[in-house]
Amino acid sequence: MGEIILKTNDLTVDFKVKKNVFGKADRLSAVHNANIEIKKGEIYGLVGESGCGKTTLANAILGFVPITSGSFEAFGHTIDAKTGAAEWKDARRHMQTVFQDPYSSLNARFTVWQIISEPLYIAGERDERVLCERAAALVEKVGLSLTDLDRYIFEFSGGQRQRIAIARALITNAELIICDEPTSALDVSVHSQICNLLLDLREEFGLTYLFISHNLSLIKHITDHMAVMYLGEILESGATDEIFKNPQSPYTKALMSAILEVNPKEKRERIILSGEARSPINPPNLCRFAGRCGEACELCHNAPLPDFKKIGDDHFARCHLIGKGK
C-alpha cells in the first residue's frame, strides 16, 4: 500500500442535452471537479444516490464517456480530454470492470470460456490454446468448475454469472478493478459470497478496487477509503472509519441515518430528507444539496460551495456549516 495508482484532477464530465430543434443545448453536469486518489491494494468506495454521477465518474476513467475537462493520472499516463486513442488504450490495459447487472452485461450467444477470454482476445492474444488455458485457470479461482466453461450463461444463476464477470475482469491481469454495484442485482444470501470472493481475489492477485455502491453498510465493511457524491459533486472523502465515526456533511449524516439496521443497538432519530434530488441540468454554482438540506443557512443558498476542509488526518469535507458550531 502507499503508491497512488489512480488520481483524478478536477475531473469533470458534462453531457449536452438538446432542448429542441432550435433550442440552445443544456448542460447536464454529471461529474463536477472530482478529485479522488486510489492507493495500490486498497478498496476505494464511491457512495451516493442514483443519478449522483458515481457511475459516470467510473465510466470516464474507463473511457466509456469523454472527459469534458480535468484529467486523471493512472499507471504512468496522464489522460485528459485531448488524449489520443493509443495512450488511452495503453492506460486502460490495467483497468477492468465488473458491471451491476450480470444478466445484461454478458453475451448470451457466447459460451463461458469465450466470455471470459474475450478481453484477452481484444488485447491481441489470438492463440486459442492460451485463451482456453487462461480461462480454465481463472474459472476455478472464482468458484466455478471446468465443466462450466462450455455452457451458455442462461444456465447460470445471478451469483454464478457475476462470478463469470469477475473472471472476465481478471483475465488481462488488470491491477485496478472497477466494481459498479456488483451485488445490487443479486439475492441477499449471494451478496456475501461475491464480496468474500472479491476480498479473496484481492489478496491473491494484489488487486485494487474502485467499489461503487449505494449500500452504505457494505461500503463500511469493505472499503478503506471512500467518497460521498451528491449530484456530481464530491461532498466528503477520506478514510472510511473516520467518516463513519464522525460524518461532517449533512448529506452524509442523512445517508447514514437512512440505513435500516436489523438489530439496532439503540433507537436513533432518523433524518428523513424532504423532496428529491434537483435536476443536474445547468446547476448554479452553489451547494447542490442546499435545497434538501435540513441545516442549510443563508450562505448555502447564496455563496458557492466552499473548498474541502480538513477534518482529521485523512478526512475532508466541504460544507458551509463545518466549524460553525452546528
Binding site: 441477499v188 444470501s189 451478496h191 456475501s192 464480496c195 468474500n196 476480498l199 453498510s217 457494505l218 463500511k220 465493511h221 472509519d241 440505513i259 439496521e261 436489523v262 438489530n263 443497538k265
Partner: peptide, 12 residues
C-alpha cells in the same frame, strides 16, 4: 449475512 454496523468485519 447483513453486516453489523457497529463492528467492522473482515469477512462476510
Amino acid at each position: 449475512t447483513v453486516p453489523d454496523m457497529n463492528t467492522k468485519t473482515e469477512r462476510f
